[in-house]
């Protein structure tokens, strides 16, 4: 059941991302030629570099952010792939890798959240976006807003708590067998939502970056 829900939800979110990318292009025109696609890929790649214009703190923040994403990718692969692709529960060396990167992810996520919280706070612009939404002024509503990136940031921050605490608390002699089962279910379903939020967040951040560049 979980596998089916996971696969479908991930496919749907990725589908929405693709649709949104084509429905709301960042630039005025989309270059779909070979050269354009190469340039696009190089552009994406450069996003992972530490920009020379960044200050030391900025570089550190971006570095932590990148490590957080890397850890999250590893946790996703080790946590979801055995169950979704192989149909087996997480165990063996995969479990060890998962458990090793989990605390690293927690630390990096904490630093990233502290570092980017101020940047991601909601401002007047987001309030205006809500006003436009409620007053039916929808033209370009889904194309030109930082709200999505901020919203997914905070959603991610919130979701990290149940994901992490559900596993950590199960390691203490507090919850019995039934409690353990609930915690495990909580962990993986929250993790699934976190994955979906993370996909949206990364997409929206990259989109915003494209716009700036």
């Amino acid at each position: 059941m979980f596998a089916i829900i996971s696969i479908w939800s991930i496919v749907i979110v990725l589908g929405l991302v693709v649709v949104h990318w084509f429905a709301c292009p960042v630039g005025d025109k989309r270059d779909l030629s070979f050269g354009g696609l190469v340039r696009f890929k190089v552009h994406v790649l450069t996003m992972f570099f530490l920009g020379q214009k960044l200050s030391l703190v900025g570089k550190l923040k971006k570095l932590v952010y990148m490590v957080t994403l890397l850890c999250f990718l590893i946790l996703f692969l080790t946590g979801f792939v055995p169950r979704l692709i192989c149909g087996v529960p997480l165990s063996g060396y995969t479990l060890m890798i998962h458990a090793t990167f989990a605390p690293v992810f927690a630390v990096c996520a904490m630093i990233a959240i502290v570092g980017y919280a101020q940047q991601c706070r909601f401002t007047r612009e987001e309030l205006d976006w809500v006003v436009r939404l409620t007053t039916c002024k929808w033209k370009g509503l889904l194309c030109n807003s930082a709200l999505g990136g901020k919203l997914t940031f905070w959603l991610g921050a919130i979701l990290i708590l149940p994901v992490a605490l559900s596993m950590i608390s199960s390691m203490y002699p507090i919850f019995g067998t039934h409690g353990q089962e609930i915690l495990f279910e909580l962990h993986r379903y929250c993790a699934l939502v976190l994955v979906l939020v993370a996909i949206c967040h990364v997409y929206l951040v990259m989109r915003a970056k494209f716009k700036v560049d």
């Binding site: 989990a102 605390p103 927690a106 502290v114 605490l165 950590i168």
Partner: peptide, 12 residues
Amino acid sequence: MKETVLLCCAVI
């Protein structure tokens, strides 16, 4: 590890 993650969760 448990203490570290708990601390991180507390900060978040």
